[in-house]
């Protein structure tokens, strides 16, 4: 077997791993119950996905919107705005991360409202 053939096998293996991870996370995703907001790993707020509204997070660095059972960041004061571009989340385990502000928004599921125990 040539090096090139081994390369192809390794690349296919990586693509398969990526596909498997996609399937596990996205097809197996359950509807979430609410979101938990953390700064530096410390929980600062928790909202149910039925609590529609706009919330200022972390002293106004990020704005969280909850509507129609989905949550997203509508505004951020950081330069890259990656958290705004990450879009809407609704399924158990989905997250939005704002690295400059050390802030994360993670959906928790209907049965595991004790997400803190895991993370």
């Amino acid at each position: 077997m040539t090096k090139f053939q081994r390369d192809i096998i390794l690349i296919c293996a990586f693509l398969l791993v990526a596909a498997a991870l996609f399937l596990i996370f996205f097809l197996g995703a359950e509807e979430g119950a609410g979101v938990v907001v953390k700064v530096n790993g410390v929980e600062i707020a928790r909202y149910s996905l039925t609590q529609e509204g706009e919330y200022e997070l972390n002293g106004g660095t990020n704005t969280l919107v909850i509507k129609d059972g989905k949550a997203w960041i509508s505004h951020a004061d950081c330069p890259d705005h990656l958290c705004v571009k990450q879009g809407k989340i609704r399924s158990n385990g989905q997250s939005i991360a704002c690295r400059p502000n050390f802030l994360t928004v993670t959906v928790y599921g209907k049965d595991d409202s004790d997400v803190d125990l895991i993370s």
């Binding site: 990586f14 693509l15 791993v17 990526a18 596909a19 991870l21 996609f22 996370f25 953390k38 530096n40 790993g41 410390v42 385990g93 989905q94 997250s95 991360a97 690295r99 050390f102 994360t104 993670t106 895991i118 993370s119």
Partner: peptide, 17 residues
């Protein structure tokens, strides 16, 4: 590690791809 969360799980498929 720095942010104290487990979001790695969720980003892993995108990062591998």
């Amino acid at each position: 590690i720095l942010m104290g969360t487990d979001i790695l799980r969720y980003y892993a498929p995108f990062l591998v791809l």
